[in-house]
Every structure is written in C-alpha cells, then in structure tokens.
Simulated scan of single mutants.
Amino acid sequence: MEFDPRSPEFVADPYPAYRRLRESGRAIWYEPTGQWLVPHYADVSACLRDRRLGRTYLHRFTHEEFGRTPPPAEHEPFHVLNDNGMLDLEAPDHTRIRRLVAKAFTPATVRGLTPTIERLAAELVADLCADGGGDLLARVAEPLPVAVIAEMLGIPAADRGLLRPWSAAICGMYELNPDEATATAAVRASVEFSAYLRELIAARRRDPGEDLISALIAAYDEGDRLSEQEMISTCVLLLNAGHEATVNTTANGWWTLLRHPDQLELLRKDPQLLPTAIEELLRYDTPLQLFERWVLDDIEIGGTTIPRGSEVALLFGSAHRDPARFADPDRLDLARADNPHLAFGAGIHYCLGAPLARIELAASFGQLLRSAPGLRLVREPEWKPGYVIRGLRELLVEV
C-alpha cells in the first residue's frame, strides 16, 4: 500500500506505507496535496524547532507574495478564529499570547484539577460498568476531556453538549484538502462558538469567577492584555487541542491494548507501569498523524532543497516508527523507557496542555484498569475517514 490519506485501508493501517516512505527518501514530493512529506524522526524533530518554518507566513508575507491564493471570503469567520490562536501564530504574536495564557493556565491550575478529573473518570467508568459495557469512546473517552475543559472555562453544564459538535466541525478544516461542505460546517461552528464565547466573556467581565476565562481576562503582562478575539481563539484552541488528542489516545490506546493482551495483562499486574504505558500508547498509534509547516526561507532536507513558499507535511506517525530512533519500533512495549515521542509537538508550539492531557489519560486508563479488569472487545472497530486527526468511530466493549 502507498501513502494515500483518502484510502480507508491506509487510514486503518498507515504504518507499512510509512516504512516504504522512509526507505524512499527524507523529503518526498506528494502531488495530490502539493506538499513535501517528511517521514524520518530526526527530520520531523528538527523541522518542529526550525524557525525557517512556520505555522503561518502572514507575519512576513501576503498571500500573493508567498505564491498562495487567499482563502475565499466566505471562509473568513473560520480563519479569524483560527488565525488568532497560538497554534497558528509565530513570534512575536505567538510569544506574547502564550506568555499571557501561561499566566492563567498555570501548573498549579492544572494540578488543582486532578481531584475533579479523577472524580469524573470514576463516575464515567462506573456508569459504563453498571451497564455491562457500551461504547467506550462515547461513554468515557469523549466526555471526560470535554467536561474538564468546560469546567476550566466555566461553561455551564447545560451548555456543554454544544462543545463537541462545534469542535468536530472546526477540526474538519485541519484535514488535507477539506471540501466545501466541511468548510461550510466549520464556518457555521466558528460563528456560533465565537458568539457564545463573546457572551460568556462579557458575563465574566461583569462578574469574575474562579474559571480560566476570568483568569484570561485578568492576565496582564508589561502593560499588555489579550484582546477579545485572542481570548475567544484561545478558548476554542484549548477545547479543540485539549480534547481531540485525549479522546483519540484513549480509544486508540484501548484498541491497541486489546490487540496486545500480553501487554495489557502486564499493565494490569503492575499499575506502576501506567505513566510509561501512556507515553508508549501516544507513540505507538499517535492521534495526530501529520502536522504542517510553511517554508519561510529555503531549507534542505537530505540533499533536497525545499524552496520558500512550499509546505511540508511532518509525518508524526512515521517518525514514531522510525527504527533509527526507536528500538524495535513496531513492537508495543509499555515499559519502554527511552521514548522521546513527538505527540505533543516540540519547539515554541509544544502543547501547553500536555500536563493536563497526561493527568486525564492516567485517570481514565487507571480507572478502567481497576474497575473493569475483564474489559473485552465486542467487535472490531472502524476508523473515521479523517487521517490528520486519526480516530475510531466507536469502541464497543463488555466489562
């Protein structure tokens, strides 16, 4: 099988194609998406840290100067929302916003959420067990991180059902070559989510609370504050980045464990393995398979010059199976100690929420291991069509 993100067979198991890509070179031109594929760990890691590459080019060039066509005007609500978040900004804007957000999203804030996260995980797993099983993805993997982010932001419980559909619609635009129906859904979700948050921010300005939105409003550094749009974009980013990866790591991770009963049994016998097990599950079947960067100045990878104006596709899934960096990379080893995976990125865009994600994953995996020792699969799951953010449609289990 060749690299083909549109193929269900490839999405279900991209790893043989990755092996062939690594064997064929270090930078491979892929005509269907107009990108240079980068499949080797060392190159992916270096590119994430290379300031000649960027998540945007608009801090230095216009679309026309960069040889790119501006997005359609009707897509503007999505781009306003997306382009004012940390993930798609470069210095100095990225530096300023991240510094301000970090004043609100502190390690102490994250640690303080641990009891809430463990309580929510225990309740969700108890409900699943009481019913004798069900869809682990819909019953545990999805609701936990959404509830945690909603709790952090101070979103009322009655409104939390809105968040996942908005997030899923917006994240559709991160796939390769999204179609017009995907763009229309993302624009609608961007408008609705932005309007909702604008009202919530106004309410917190009048009556501050202990939530993250109130802290973002109060965040102040060297005479600078976040604009309203930056706050809205930050909240949406925290939701999208803060749960998409966690949802898919949980479901993909359990699907991996159920296919490796020897490793699952090892983990059940030794719960102390859980921290390294989570890192290995993040490596072995990473939820974010591809991350894009624009080439702001000519670079060279493996003797191939990639000119300014190009786009590189950093293949995290391939990098994590690179034998040049990981011993026996196709083997699941929950005790793997040397595991510098890139699931949370690297460089200035390293995931601000990585500590929170690890707490959530430890809570849900730990609770399921303790409360559902007989957890077993009902039927083999299917993969959703998305490739960049790769996850299952459902994971039906019995306990």
Rank of each mutant, 00 (worst) to 15 (best):
R52P: 05
A42P: 03
I97R: 07
T69A: 13
L58C: 03
R60Y: 12
H59W: 10
A102D: 09
M86Y: 11
N82G: 11
L53P: 00
D50H: 01
V101T: 11
N84H: 15
G54A: 01
G54P: 01
D88Q: 03
L81K: 03
D83A: 03
L87R: 03
R49N: 00
T69G: 07
E64Q: 05
T56A: 06
E74T: 09
R99N: 15
F66S: 02
A42M: 01
A73V: 12
D88H: 11
E90D: 06
P72W: 07
N82Q: 08
N84Y: 13
P92T: 10
P70M: 08
P70E: 06
I97H: 12
R49Q: 01
R52Y: 05
L81V: 11
R51H: 14
R55F: 06
D93I: 05
T62I: 08
N82F: 10
C47D: 01
L100S: 08
E64L: 08
R51D: 11
C47G: 02
H63F: 13
A102M: 12
P77V: 12
T62H: 06
K103A: 15
E65R: 03
C47A: 12
D88N: 08
N84K: 08
R99Q: 15
G67L: 10
R96M: 15
T69I: 14
H63E: 10
L53Y: 02
L48E: 04
G54D: 00
H63A: 13
L100Y: 14
H59Y: 07
G67F: 12
D83S: 06
R98A: 13
N82L: 07
H59R: 00
P72F: 12
F61V: 01
T95V: 07
T56L: 02
P77C: 07
N84C: 07
L58D: 04
G85A: 14
T62E: 04
H79E: 06
A91D: 12
T62Q: 05
F78K: 00
L89H: 09
T56Q: 02
V80S: 13
L100W: 10
T56E: 04
E74Q: 06
K103V: 15
P77M: 13
I97M: 14
R96D: 15
Y41A: 08
D43G: 04
